[in-house]
Nucleic acid binder design. Structure first.
Length: 283
DNA sequence: GCTTGCGCCTGAATGC
DNA sequence: TGCATTCAGGCGCAAG
């Protein structure tokens, strides 16, 4: 699924191919794609027609396109893609929303197999949509404040991985990158947030930044010419993951077999030697 | 206010 | 072979 590095690549693609262009028609092909736009699909379509897209912005895994003072807010969910291409090409089955432009140039399509993604238009939300005001800055954002993050973390009574996945504390980190960052920082996922020392928090934030930077470098997205086409899987594939999905394989640092634990109805991967389990863990 | 668990959804992988 | 079940994931919401 698209994580922060992929979303950032898409944002820059929208900047290049969509910013400054005027919408002509917006077709919502699946109602679930706009389920959070409470006024309905018709309202979203008519509100956008004839209006000009501004410079796309991002917070965590959310993207928004300012439209005058309003915001077209988008989240790609698990399987969402934004594709730009020839408007005459066939509409494939998983296209949920299609945006055509007044210049009759390449159109923008929101493609999403599993429909976890969504979009909505928020009136007056261009600066920071209220719908995502609770989302914290991500560690690549200039607004990210490590001291504040550390202080909030210590006041929590939960495990570190649960906290990393809580977008109101720190944004942009999903299950895969959480495991990779914890491995780099040599922290076990069940470590209690209240027992973390300040240097450990710094190490963790540094590790998250490294993982994001590596994913950006790896080009988790293919992005050529007119096409902004995000393949959710390709990023991880080329990144070379240390622990995620590698149960039983050797830890790249010490060779110990990677362990898999059940966590929040999903999995956590870690190295039993580099990331020792705490005596009193939280999860 | 904070923490935890569920439901949403579909395609791939696995089990019988 | 074919059908049924499980799993993966982020997020909003409701319950504790």
């Amino acid at each position: 699924m698209p994580e922060l590095p992929e979303v950032e690549t898409i944002r820059s693609g929208l900047e290049r191919h969509v910013a400054g262009r005027t919408f002509s028609t917006v077709d919502v092909l699946h109602p679930r794609a706009v389920r959070r736009h409470l006024a309905g699909a018709g309202d979203l379509s008519s509100a956008l027609a004839g209006r000009r897209a501004g410079m796309p912005r991002r917070r965590g895994k959310y993207l928004w396109l300012p439209v005058d003072g309003d915001a077209l807010l988008m989240h790609l969910g698990m399987s969402g893609q934004l594709v730009i291409g020839d408007p005459a090409r066939p509409v494939t089955p998983h296209v949920r929303v299609r945006f055509a432009f007044a210049d009759e140039g390449p159109d923008l399509r929101f493609v999403d197999q599993r429909t976890f993604g969504h979009m909505l238009l928020e009136r007056g939300g261009a600066e920071l949509p209220a719908a995502i005001a609770h989302i914290a800055p991500d560690p690549l954002d200039a607004a990210f404040d490590e001291a504040r993050f550390a202080a909030r973390l210590r006041h929590r009574r939960t495990g570190i991985k649960r906290a990393l996945l809580d977008q109101s504390l720190i944004s942009g980190v999903g299950n895969i990158y959480a495991d990779e960052a914890l491995w780099r920082a040599r922290l076990h996922w069940a470590r209690g947030t209240d027992g973390l020392r300040r240097p450990e928090v710094s190490r963790l934030v540094g590790a998250i930044r490294e993982v994001f930077a590596a994913a950006l470098r790896a080009g988790g997205t293919t992005f050529d010419g007119l096409y902004v086409h995000v393949n959710g899987e390709s990023g991880y594939f080329s990144l070379g993951l240390a622990v995620y999905g590698r149960e039983g394989e050797p830890c790249p640092r010490c060779g110990t077999a990677v362990r898999r634990d059940k966590f929040m109805n999903r999995s956590s991967f870690s190295c039993p030697k580099c990331q020792p389990r705490p005596r009193r863990g939280r999860w």
